[in-house]
């Protein structure tokens, strides 16, 4: 569903992604690992059209991100959740969830609210539907942000280090939700440093280093064999204590 074809992306002199190619199907959870600053987040942002790519092409559902006209369709199909929680502070939780389906998917207010309640139940925050962002903890905000992305019925969720700004207790709260969604069959593409999450939920692991793909393997093989075969990966995993 997502085809990344030979893309290059640099910020000034710094090349973040170099001739990068990868494909994602519309199934399962793919976890993207790698040291900081190796272009993992940039990859997700490029897929969502938040960054312009210098060369190459990304096709989502056969539509290229290079054509600005496709961006809307692409973004509706790829929900994205960021590291820093971004709820709209002028709206309460319910409106945060419903404004986009009403405006973009032309849902009626009632339909949108029903759908919002469904997803709020899913993330366990139905009691907070009238709250504002400053009355919610970081973990709760992030769960709302996930629910808000699901409101658009995306084919895939792009998760950009959604737990790294949270303390351990809150991040396990968020990870539990993600686990539940994965069990429901939501397709996810997650950049994360949470190895236990990767082991438990992921079906496929990508390992990036210095802007290129080091390995792309099923999760079992990655943690059993590749980590011993590839020195770079084993160093990384040892370093983060796995």
């Amino acid at each position: 569903m997502i085809e990344v074809k030979n893309i290059t992306k640099s910020f000034g002199d710094l090349t973040v992604l170099k001739n990068f190619t990868v494909n994602f199907k519309e199934e399962g959870v793919t976890v993207i690992l790698g040291p900081s600053g190796t272009g993992k987040s940039t990859l997700l942002r490029c897929i969502n059209g938040l960054e312009n790519i210098d060369s190459g092409d990304i096709l989502v559902d056969g539509l290229s991100v290079n054509d600005k006209k496709n961006l809307r369709h692409i973004r509706l199909n790829c929900g994205m959740v960021f590291q820093q929680t971004v709820l709209f502070p002028h709206l309460d939780v319910m409106h945060n969830m419903t404004v986009s389906p009403i405006k973009l998917l032309k849902l009626s207010k009632k339909e949108a609210e029903e759908r919002a309640e469904f997803y709020l139940n899913k993330v366990g925050l139905i009691s907070k539907k009238k709250s504002r962002h400053n009355e919610l903890s970081g973990g709760e905000q992030q769960r709302i942000a996930i629910a808000r992305a699901l409101m658009m019925n995306p084919k895939a969720l792009l998760l950009d280090e959604v737990t790294s700004a949270l303390d351990p207790e809150m991040s396990s709260e968020v990870l539990n939700i993600l686990e539940k969604l994965a069990a429901d069959g939501v397709c996810m593409l997650a950049v994360t440093h949470e190895m236990s999450f990767a082991k438990k939920v992921a079906s496929r692991i990508l390992f990036l280093d210095k802007g290129s793909l080091v390995c792309d393997e099923p999760v079992e093989r990655f943690f059993r064999e590749t980590r011993n075969e590839n020195e770079r990966i084993s160093r990384f995993l040892n370093f983060i204590g796995e």
Binding site: N48, G49, L50, L71, R72, R75, L76, G79, M80, F82, Q84, V86, F88, P89, H90, L91, V99, S100, K103, L104, A145, R148, A149, M152, L158
Partner: peptide, 26 residues
């Protein structure tokens, strides 16, 4: 913050739509 724009884009809103629904009220 730029994140507000991006959150809007990521939900599928266009520039004008983000501006009107999220940026202007704030």
């Amino acid at each position: 913050p730029q994140g507000q724009w991006e959150a809007g884009y990521a939900l599928g809103h266009g520039k004008t739509s983000v501006f009107i629904h999220f940026i202007v009220p704030q």
